Computed example of a mutant assay.
Amino acid sequence: MMKQALIGEFMHEAENTRKLLSMIPDSALEYRPQPHLWSVGQLASHIAEVYNWYEPTFDLDDFDMGSYKYDKGDISKAANILARFEENVSKAKTVIENSDESKYMNNWIMSAGGNALMPAMPKIQVIRGFLYNHLYHHRGELISHLRATGNKVPSLYGPNYEESQAF
């Protein structure tokens, strides 16, 4: 039952993420609102990469970030980031579908070289917080970055600003 709820939310939100990533123009990829913040391209790449974390989160009880190999790919074109997203989201969906719901309450930990990076918590809490909510947070940042460059953003949970002005 939990698995079906996770899949439903996953599919709905993957479509929202797809809509957002599809609206990124190449001209905005280098924009960053402040020097210490990620650029649009880096942020979009990170969003696409989060879907690679589904397998070690669902299938392992200890995700060793020390051995994880982050590969953002070629972020010089928005189409490349979207293609990476499509590849990763497909794999993540399969991971959820094949997951064992009886293990959702197993304690899960993120470590690096044997050192805990965060306290152990039930896997379902990590799935909701570390995978799902983390992604939504970064989508919000990306929307802010795109708005700052004068680009349009999609409506995700109802009309966006432009659409609301039409009423």
Rank of each mutant, 00 (worst) to 15 (best):
A48C: 05
N107L: 08
I124N: 11
A5N: 03
F63G: 06
L29Y: 15
E141D: 11
I109A: 14
M11K: 12
Y157V: 08
E49N: 14
L6A: 08
D74E: 09
E162F: 02
S76W: 02
D59F: 00
Q165T: 15
K152P: 01
R128P: 00
S155H: 06
E163N: 06
S155W: 04
G8V: 04
H137Y: 08
L20E: 14
A83Y: 01
T57N: 07
Q4L: 01
L60G: 06
P33G: 14
M118T: 03
F63D: 08
R128N: 09
M1Y: 04
L131S: 08
K152L: 10
F130T: 07
P154R: 01
R18V: 01
W53D: 13
E30N: 14
F167R: 13
A44R: 00
K123N: 10
L142D: 07
N106P: 00
P119C: 14
L43G: 04
E13K: 03
F85L: 05
P56W: 06
L21Y: 04
H145M: 10
A14N: 01
S90Y: 02
A166E: 13
N133P: 04
Y68I: 08
Q4M: 02
S99C: 09
E30A: 14
M118R: 12
E163S: 13
Q165M: 15
M2Y: 06
G158A: 06
E86W: 05
N106S: 01
E87P: 01
L21H: 04
D59N: 07
V40W: 02
A83V: 08
K123V: 00
T94F: 01
D62K: 08
A79V: 06
S144H: 09
D100C: 01
A112S: 13
V89T: 05
R128H: 08
W53M: 10
A48L: 04
L131N: 07
V40R: 00
L156G: 09
W108C: 00
E86F: 05
F10M: 02
E13D: 12
A83S: 07
S111Q: 02
K103C: 00
A28F: 06
T17C: 15
L43N: 08
H134N: 12
N160G: 12
I7D: 06
P119A: 12
S45Y: 12
G150T: 06
N115D: 05
M118W: 07
F63I: 02
